[in-house]
């Protein structure tokens, strides 16, 4: 029996562990080392340069554009998405059951699509001549508002953010409305008896009780905002947009590595992105812990 137990455990764990070490752990570990070298892809020709790559990042204007754009995405996309998501989720509570179910089905669908499909679709929507958006604006007489959304530096990043929000709102509507349905009905009734309007009920009852879901949403959307690679790479001109208006860290990293062959430098960008992600997760979790103490 003991013998069989160990043989089973080895058989169950070893294949997955081997894959994990070869394709996941070792690349992550190597990335940290590579970021301290000037490696250009030739075997055995990497010299150690210390933190030079990181110093260079600080003076690389395109990379700084990328960081700025990712920060804008980080500030806007989660907030807007969660705002719309919470609004629609709390409205769903008031709509007839069947209709609400129908809305959930429609809202959720974009979540299932590949970001590639979404990016290609929206590059058609934004097309200055034949796109849905501009021709729609022309049809209702708002010709003045039409523009080449993805080619104008002032609008390209806004257009990208709109796509990210569009594609993720539905998921959070469903997530939040599941959380809202978990709130005991008596609480809403008590609020109503106390004369609380919808607005007050939302702030005083709904929001505090779905806070944990909102926190999870911030982490997920924050990570998505630090990425945004597929949408930018496929949708915007350049890629990287007009004047680097939509450059993101992932884009810089990809180009530096696989177009320019500067693998050491690209790895430094990867490490920077890793620490950004880590900081985000830690901040969100600590914020959450504080809230819980306040509630207790």
């Amino acid at each position: 029996m003991r013998h069989g137990r160990w043989r089973f455990l080895l058989g169950a764990l070893v294949p997955a562990l081997v894959l994990h070490v070869v394709f996941v752990l070792s690349p992550y570990a190597q990335a940290f080392y590579l970021s301290l070298t000037d490696w250009t892809g030739v075997a055995g020709q990497a010299s150690f340069v210390g933190v030079d790559n990181y110093v260079r990042l600080g003076g690389d204007s395109l990379f700084l554009d990328a960081v700025r754009n990712n920060l804008v995405l980080l500030a806007v996309v989660p907030l807007v998405t969660i705002g719309i998501g919470l609004f629609l989720a709390s409205m769903l509570r008031h709509s007839p059951a069947r209709l609400g179910q129908g809305y959930r089905i429609v809202y959720f669908f974009p979540q299932l699509l590949s970001l590639v499909v979404i990016a290609v679709l929206w590059s058609f929507v934004y097309n200055p001549n034949t796109g849905l958006l501009n021709s729609g604006l022309r049809a209702i007489g708002l010709d003045g508002l039409t523009r080449s959304w993805l080619a104008e530096p002032a609008w390209a990043l806004v257009a990208v953010m709109a796509v990210l929000v569009w594609s993720s709102v539905g998921f959070y509507v469903v997530l939040f409305s599941a959380a809202i349905e978990g709130i005991p009905a008596e609480l809403f009734e008590a609020a109503k008896l106390d004369g609380a309007g919808r607005w007050a009920t939302f702030w005083k009852v709904t929001l505090p009780l779905v806070r944990e879901s909102v926190q999870v949403a911030f982490v997920y959307l924050g990570i998505a905002a630090l990425d945004a690679f597929a949408v930018v790479q496929i949708m915007t001109v350049g890629p990287g947009g007009p004047d680097g208006a939509t450059e993101v860290i992932g884009m810089s990293l990809y180009r530096t590595a696989f177009s320019y062959g500067k693998f050491g430098y690209a790895s430094a960008m990867g490490v920077a992105l890793f620490f950004a992600t880590l900081t985000l997760a830690v901040l969100a979790l600590r914020a959450g812990r504080k809230e819980r103490l306040e509630l207790a």
Binding site: H20, P27, Y28, G41, L226, G250, L253, S267, L273
Partner: peptide
């Protein structure tokens, strides 16, 4: 330990692994 070795990988951005992964493959 094995559990955390697997689960920790979920918190790393794939971009970080991209360059070395290319050469491993």
């Amino acid at each position: 330990v094995i559990y955390y070795i697997f689960v920790a990988a979920m918190f790393f951005p794939v971009f970080l692994a991209l360059v070395p992964l290319f050469f491993v493959v």
